[in-house]
């Protein structure tokens, strides 16, 4: 088992090294996330009464679209020079390739989200200090759910023409439970409500994460075979 996870982390570390070196993905994701916040900042008056109602939506539009930008590039890296075949030839179970990719994509998305969050608080004049611990739980759960399915669909769409266009078309309908749960629970947390008011949304996120992670983990091997 240790052998398996060593290889999984090797793949994740390789992806992170390549992406942090080229910085193409991190810049485009970061820019997109900040741009969304800046544009909404012009549209809505910071500090206005209604801002707490619209802020959760703005936050998740920025996070989800930035993450999907990163996902679309995830397997492009493996397509160049047919590196995917190099990974498939290694003595690692193919589920390990999926897991390595999920870890890499998850870390990437989390980095972008953690950098964006303070900007979000400043742009919309929100104090997130007390809301931060529960908000982080929601961010981690929703990002993981988005990445597990997104990584699978990214592998699916990279081999086909117009894959960049097909990825969001496949991904977003599947992500409706994650997006609704994330937006609703973020709104309740920002409004200062107790955990009992948004616990059902957290349960939905946890259930989605477990079900779709296991399903994607099992399906991946069949998906990448020619």
């Amino acid at each position: 088992m240790g052998y398996y996870f060593k290889k999984v982390f090797l793949i994740a570390a390789k992806d992170l090294r390549i992406e942090f070196r080229s910085k193409e993905k991190i810049y485009s994701m970061m820019l997109f996330s900040l741009l969304v916040m800046v544009i909404f900042n012009f549209a809505f008056e910071p500090g206005a009464e209604y801002i707490k109602d619209v802020a959760p939506g703005i936050l998740w539009v920025a996070f989800i679209f930035a993450a999907s930008l990163g996902l679309s590039r995830s397997f492009v890296l493996e397509k160049e020079e047919d590196c995917m075949q190099g990974l498939m030839l290694s003595p690692l179970d193919r589920s390990g390739i999926y897991l390595g990719k999920v870890i890499g994509n998850f870390i990437f998305a989390m980095v972008i989200e953690l950098i964006s969050l303070p900007f979000f608080a400043v742009f919309f004049n929100l104090s997130l200090t007390s809301a931060l611990p529960p908000l982080m739980i929601v961010i981690v759960l929703a990002t993981f759910g988005f990445i597990t399915v997104g990584t699978l669909f990214s592998a699916l769409s990279v081999g086909i023409r117009g894959g960049d266009m097909i990825l969001p078309l496949l991904l977003f309908p599947m992500q409706v439970p994650v997006i609704i749960s994330a937006v609703k629970s973020t709104g309740l947390i920002m409004a200062g409500s107790g955990i009992d008011t948004y616990s059902q949304w957290l349960k939905l996120l946890i259930a989605f994460d477990i079900i779709f992670f296991v399903a994607s983990f099992v399906i991946f091997e069949y998906l990448i075979e020619e």
Partner: peptide
């Protein structure tokens, strides 16, 4: 193969380290 299975943004040594560790 005529395709290299190598990563352009890693050095020659880093590529070999990656594949060597996989094996």
């Amino acid at each position: 193969s005529h395709k290299a299975f190598l990563y352009g943004n890693l050095s020659a040594k880093e590529n070999l380290l990656f594949f060597g560790r996989l094996y």
